[in-house]
Amino acid sequence: MTTLTDNVPGAPRPRGGVAQSINDSLVVTKRNLIRMSRIPEMVVFGLIQPVMFVVLFSFVFGGSMSVGGNTDPAVYREFLMAGIFAQTVTFATAGAGAGIADDMHKGLVDRFRSLPMARGAVLTGRTLADLVQTALTLVVLAIVGLLVGWRIHNGVPKALGAFALLLLLGYAFSWIGALIGLSVRTPEAATSGGLIWLFPVTFVSNAFVDPSMMADWIRPIAEWNPFSATVQACRELFGNPGVVQSDAWPMRYPVWASILYSILIVFVFRTLSVRKYRSATV
């Protein structure tokens, strides 16, 4: 009879600061990871598309592509993988957006916002969980890559560095997804809104073809595309063919460019998202 109110110590005083932010973010991350484990089909569907792209590009386009003048399909397959890796990590945008829109739609964001928790934790928890999912996807995709002839030529440490850059890019893009998720009204809109613009971003790049073969006006866009920097960095670190020879700064220093771009995206979109979250109403 007294369970409800007696002998309950009440809410502890929030610790505030970074410690609380980390703690709250991890609680929400755990929640999202549990959710993902209970909806495995979402993880599986997330894998089908990149695997399909590897197969399609390798065996349908591969024969008619030229990488630095070399038209050997095997060379294209090695060239391709960095692009597919990078494109796949950016698809985390859609997952983050749909997840957050769904939480808004179901009233969970109201619940979270009425709790004495760190302001950014709901969003950070989501993006961290997506990072875990992205990492899993990359592992599967790397195996598929090895099966179609992709190899790393510069040693494991550099390859791990490349994967770290990919994860950072994916994390950055999931913050763009967070903002989309907070801005639309339904999870469905967040999914399509999170994906549509990714196609131009990932295709107007060095991911699938060498920018030197593009029209003159579009080539600088491809070379300065943040996405291209990560692809270029990966090719260098993996030792894969097709590294773009260009004077554009991001193409000359792709590792630094990739890191800077990603951090900038996180900074801008995290700031905007947290601000939007605080005033979020369904």
Binding site: V27, R31, I39, K106, L108, D110, R111, P116, M117
Partner: peptide, 30 residues
């Protein structure tokens, strides 16, 4: 810290168990 809100629409995470839902809320109350 001092309020509890129970809404018109049951705001629970449907992919979490009842226990996990309550534990999460407790932890977010610090």
């Amino acid at each position: 810290r001092s309020i509890g809100l129970s809404g018109q629409f049951a705001a629970v995470d449907e992919y979490l168990t009842g226990r996990e839902n309550l534990q999460m809320v407790g932890q977010l109350y610090q």
